[in-house]
Design a protein around this nucleic acid. Sequence first.
DNA 1: TCTGGGGTCCTAGGACCC
DNA 2: TCTGGGGTCCTAGGACCC
Length: 423
Amino acid sequence: MKSVILIDCNNFFVSCERVFNPSLEGKPVVVLSSNDGCVVSRSQEAKDIGIPMGAPAFQWEHIFRKYNVHIFSSHFSLYADMSRRVRETVRSLCEDSEQYSIDEFFVYCPDDKDYREWCHTIRQRIMQWTGIPTSIGIAPTKTLAKIANKIAKKNKSFNAIVDWQRDIQDHEAMLESIPCSDVWGIGRRYARFLLSRGIENARQLRDADEAMIKKNLSIVGLRICYELRGISCISLTSLQAARKTLMHSRTFGKMLTDYDELSQAITLYASFAAYSLRRHRLVASAITVFIRTNRFRDDLPQYFQEKTIAIIPPSHNTLFIIETAQQALKSIYKKGYHYAKGGVIFTGLCPEDAAQHSLFPSKYTKQHYHNAIKAMDSIVMRYGKKTLYPASCGVQRRWLSKAALCSPSYISSFNDIPICHAK
DNA sequence: TCTGGGGTCCTAGGACCC
DNA sequence: TCTGGGGTCCTAGGACCC
């Protein structure tokens, strides 16, 4: 039987902060979502205090103070770069690997050997080359590898590596101890449904009636049952699938009522997203703009609306895209609401060199527009995002998201490079 | 006062075609 | 009075993930 190995970075965002600030070791640390809203990463010490995932920061402030919790805003460019370093390290050791998320990697092994020694080497090298601690699960299927990984994280006696076949003696008892909601692919809705049918744990889910599962949890649920039995249904996709959507959205730093301010925000997001398209060498064939009020404020009238407009011909030209985005916003904006969040979503992505040309080209397909965008990008690349931007993005930007507690740009800004003092 | 952002996959149903 | 059937494509909505 073949094996799947899941390498998972421990408390990834917190671990990234610790690499550059070792004094945080052993202390409770949390990283907040953008706009400093919710807790999205916790050190073990923070978990031990009882701070849950997703905790709204403002509700937990007194706990943060009481236990002297170190708090950081999300620093995504830093985490993305650290993720790239871990990926390169994994690739240096594993031929067949797949990056599943920013902090997880599946590795495929051709036969059923004892991989523990090798996994120790992988952990050690990732730690040595990147400073990021990891946990590893080994099993016949991805779903079981996820479970093995979870056991490795929870139970320190395994030394961070668990082989489902070799290290777990009583598989029935182990599966019975795992609630359905802890199984990969079973979310809140499905867990509630399963519970209503008397299916409480992974063992019962594994043995559940197939027709009933397929009918209510679709083919996805049935695959999970098979995977729990050790029959692999979720294959390893070592080739990076083409991206299908690209989105940029933010909660505003304050609620907006004014159309001009809202338009500035949407324009800025659209220009960031267009830049992202160009970096990925993609063009989009449609843009969706959405705006919404604060869903937690039931004392205020609620409004959510979105509008999709085709981009013909498909483009990544910032000027064309912001013109289209503004047109979309105009059609959905309603006066009198307090807007809390907005964004743009690109769909119908295709590689820039494979895009369909239009019979009636827009003015933006002309060469001097390409040249202008190219010049803008090179200035931004060299001097940073804040040096040059369309005037319609606004200058004051009182609506910008909060990120008050962001760590320095250790690896992307010369001014922030850490300095070591030898004694 | 303050509650994230960015993705994927599956299904049902309608439009359309022959 | 009698009014096909099967296939594909697209989209919206719902579920999930980290």
